[in-house]
Structure formats: C-alpha cells, structure tokens
Simulated assay, not measured.
Amino acid sequence: MKEIVTSSRTRDIIRKHRFTFKKSLGQNFLIDGHVLDQIIEAAGLDESRGALEIGPGIGSLTEQLAKAAGKVTAVEIDRRLIPILQEVMSPYENVSIVQGDILKTDLKQLWQDQFASCEGVSVVANLPYYVTTPIIMKLLEEKLPLENIVVMVQKEVAQRMAANPGGKDFGSLSIAVQYYCEPQLVCIVPGKAFIPAPNVDSAVIKLKRRLEPAVSVPDEAKFFHVVQTAFSQRRKTLANNLSAFSGKERKGELSELLLQIGIQPERRAETLSLDEFARVSEALTKSGMMN
C-alpha cells in the first residue's frame, strides 16, 4: 500500500472518511515525502528513542516516525481524526493515539505514561500556525527531558527563532528559544507541499536542547521579564523601554547603570546578545529597580 504522504493516498483517506478541513484548527496535510525524510533525519531517532507528535492529522508523519522510533505518541485535538488515525496506524504496535489539546495536557505525566522506557525523546510535528509559539514555549518552559524539537512552522516564525542579534527578525522569541536550545533551519517548504495549500511558505526547524541554558541568570523569570519589556516598543531605545522598571524619575540612574555594564542606553533591544540581556537583568535586580 502507498505511504500516507502521497497525494493519492491522502486524498483517498480524506474521501473515504468524508473528512472536511477546519480552518480554525489550521489543518494542512503534508504530501511531500522528501520533506518528511528531512524531518526524520533531523530528529535523530532510533529504536531506543521516543517521539511525541503534536497534531498528527491523518498520520503521514506518524507513519514515518513509527518506522524510525521505538515509541511514538501522537496527540490530536480533533476528535474526528482519532478513528482515522487508529485505522491507518493499526499496523504499528509502537504508536499510541491520544485525543487532547497539547496546551492543556500534563506533559510531565504524559512523559511518565508514554516514554518511561525510552533513552531519549524528541518532539516531531507539523504545528498549526496559530498556536506555534504557545506550544514551543510550553515545551521549553516545562523543562521536559527533551533531546530535540523538530517542527514545521510558518517560515517567518522559524526565521525569528534562528535569528541573530541586529536584524529585524531578532526578538523575544529568538531569545527564549536560544536560551534553551540551539536552532538550525532544516529546509523551506512551499505551500504546494500540503493539502490544502496554505498561502505562505513553511520551514522545518530543529531545536537541539542545551544541557545548560545559554547564559547563567540568577532568576529566569526576571530575565525574561526584562527581555519582554525591552522589546515592548521596538522603535524605542533600551533606556526608554526599561524605564518601566525605574520610573521616569530614575531614568538618569538607569542610563548610568547601563553604561556601567558596558551598554549604551540609546541602543535598541534587537542589538543586544543573550549575554548582554543577562547582564542587564542582573544589574536591574541588584539596583532594586526590579522587585
């Protein structure tokens, strides 16, 4: 039987089950086997490792994960897809289908239930555009024992995750991802690789989990609060945005504090490295400007 990823098999499954796409769920099914091959290669799976898939659709990626990994758990929010997935994945004993919203799922419990015997686990998924960032942040912030996150996302989002300081793509998402991971763009995927075809290009990005965060900070919550505040109005200078902490009456003191740690107050947030943000966060905390 043809693989699910082929256009003809995908259309056959859709027709057989009279499936209709829901725009609200961002459903686009991949029909390009070459892209799947690159995703699987980037994930670095083997029989000792597990894969968590988010939003499997009708199972084109799930099928390839089942061949590459020892254990696959696919979490699907759309109840209509569960019987389809159970049918097409029936030849693979190492696949579990879970119905649920990944953003409401207890991931630590899922890990215990599904991946206790695995030497390592990676998240491998074609993520819906509308929830890409919340899902990525949930995976990172819960500090799961992840090896890699290999996901297909909107091209512009992938570029922001991998961006270097100094460009327009560099922002709070870049810093959050790079604090926890080493990003690598795998490939660009045109709209014609999907049914139905989206109006924008996608990209596959690999986020290799760091053993330790990229920079050492005494308080992660304060570090990310500083980052978010610094980027709150991109056209404003660092000193202007960070005056949210100092208040206007202490703005001169804030500028002097930035100069003391080697950062010009008139710089903009997108020019600062992770290390520089760590220095700013620590300085603001020690000064008492951050409670």
Rank of each mutant, 00 (worst) to 15 (best):
F223I: 06
P83W: 03
I13G: 03
L173C: 05
K222G: 06
E119R: 12
R279D: 02
L110S: 09
L272G: 06
A203L: 02
M290D: 06
E119Q: 10
Y130H: 13
Y180P: 15
I188R: 04
L258C: 07
M289H: 11
I13S: 03
K16Y: 13
V189S: 03
R250L: 06
K251R: 13
G262D: 06
V75M: 10
A283Q: 01
E276Q: 12
V151R: 14
R210Q: 08
L185K: 14
V35K: 04
S281Y: 01
V215R: 09
E76M: 15
F223M: 05
R250P: 11
K108M: 01
F245L: 09
P183N: 00
T133D: 08
C118N: 09
I4C: 04
P128K: 02
F223A: 04
C187P: 14
A230V: 06
E253H: 08
S90C: 04
K155Y: 04
S281N: 07
V226T: 08
T271A: 00
V204C: 06
T20V: 15
I39W: 05
E212W: 04
L65N: 05
S287L: 11
A125M: 04
V75D: 05
N28C: 01
P183K: 00
P91L: 00
D169T: 10
V5K: 08
T10W: 02
E266G: 11
V98L: 11
L103E: 12
E93I: 10
K222H: 07
L146K: 08
S24D: 07
G166D: 02
Y92H: 05
E282F: 11
Q38P: 15
K16E: 14
K206S: 05
E76L: 15
Q114K: 10
V131N: 12
I4S: 00
N148G: 08
S24G: 13
I261M: 03
A74G: 15
P134W: 00
R79V: 13
L173E: 04
M89E: 01
E156Q: 10
T62H: 09
G55N: 13
V215S: 04
Q112S: 07
V227Y: 01
T105N: 07
L207Q: 08
K192D: 09
G262T: 06
R160P: 15
A221F: 01
K2M: 11
I54W: 02
E156N: 12
K2E: 12
E63Y: 09
S117Q: 04
K286H: 08
A176W: 03
Q178N: 04
